[in-house]
């Protein structure tokens, strides 16, 4: 009996202690650095209070990055969910077991690829002069098509690559979710001559509400990790049209100015915003 009492402590306490240290030390350090005026070039720094935060809100590039990040979240999350549900239902309706297995395997590939690789694959495909995707356009119009250099289209082109990676993966999960549902209600509806789309809109999807919302939650979190994709494909450009918050924090802290403190204040704001938003969403999901 002794052992059964000690096991949860022995197994949990060291791991949790390490996680707390690894997570909270950088967090508090970021807060500390954000209250200074540290730069990469000079070692001297001193306390400046909330100056960095006040500067941020007057910084139009920060406001732009905030807006781009919000747009990025909305576009990628909604596109992924719509595509995944559509494709998952289509696989369930039209594919036999063999085809389903084959497609499930194929559709898993894009999400496993390093984002850097996905970005390069599609960057070349989008190449205005030599790309395979832009080839039909060139053939018909005789003009080059440069989506990644267009301020209005670049964000959508990058979002398409994100959709390519995540939409197929989620479609496989949607298929598996439908497969493990109790099939009797679907059979009953079929006997009543319900059309396939009616079965899914009125029966399957409402039954899957909870797992689908959880999937959406996962995508919301993962969409924030798109730095590599944007970095390789556009570097935030053209101009600042694809510059998300992490891109801007990176360029402030590393490329342009080495303003570590300024970048840290952005990091702190992102941390607080995401932790608060996702905690609220998660608690609501649970209840």
């Amino acid at each position: 009996m002794q052992q059964r009492q000690s096991l949860p402590y022995v197994f949990l306490v060291p791991t949790m202690a390490i996680l707390v240290v690894l997570a909270f030390v950088p967090m508090f350090y970021a807060i500390g650095v954000s209250l200074e005026n540290r730069t990469l070039s000079s070692p001297d720094s001193h306390f400046v209070g909330l100056k960095n935060y006040l500067l941020l809100f007057g910084d139009s590039r920060f406001v732009n990055a905030l807006w781009v990040s919000v747009k990025w979240e909305l576009i990628t999350v909604s596109a992924t969910m719509i595509a995944a549900i559509g494709l998952g239902v289509l696989m369930f309706e039209a594919a036999g077991p063999k085809l389903r297995n084959a497609l499930s395997l194929i559709f898993l590939i894009p999400v496993l690829l390093p984002r850097v690789c996905a970005a390069f694959v599609w960057k070349f495909a989008f190449h205005p002069l030599y790309g395979i995707i832009t080839y039909p356009y060139r053939l018909i119009t005789g003009q080059p098509l440069d989506m990644l250099s267009s301020p209005t289209q670049a964000l959508f082109a990058v979002a398409f690559v994100d959709l390519w990676q995540w939409g197929f993966f989620f479609a496989v999960i949607v298929l598996k979710l439908i497969e493990i549902l109790p099939q009797q209600p679907l059979e009953a509806a079929r006997l009543d001559y319900a059309k396939p789309w009616q079965i899914h809109v009125y029966i399957t999807l409402p039954m899957l509400r909870v797992p689908l919302v959880s999937l959406m939650f996962v995508k919301m979190i993962e969409s924030l990790r798109s730095f590599d994709l944007i970095y390789v494909m556009t570097r935030g450009g053209p101009g600042t049209s694809t510059e998300t918050l992490d891109m801007y924090a990176f360029s402030q802290g590393f490329i342009e100015a080495g303003k570590i403190s300024y970048a840290s204040s952005m990091a702190v704001i992102m941390m607080v915003a995401t932790v608060v938003i996702f905690t609220v969403v998660w608690k609501r999901l649970k209840s």
């Binding site: 996680l19 967090m27 932790v275 998660w282």
Partner: peptide, 22 residues
Amino acid sequence: QFFVLSLRFLPPVATAIPLMVI
């Protein structure tokens, strides 16, 4: 479980900047 999940909420850039200094 929630604490472990919430670690994934942290934006990587937000941990990388202070970690670089550390």
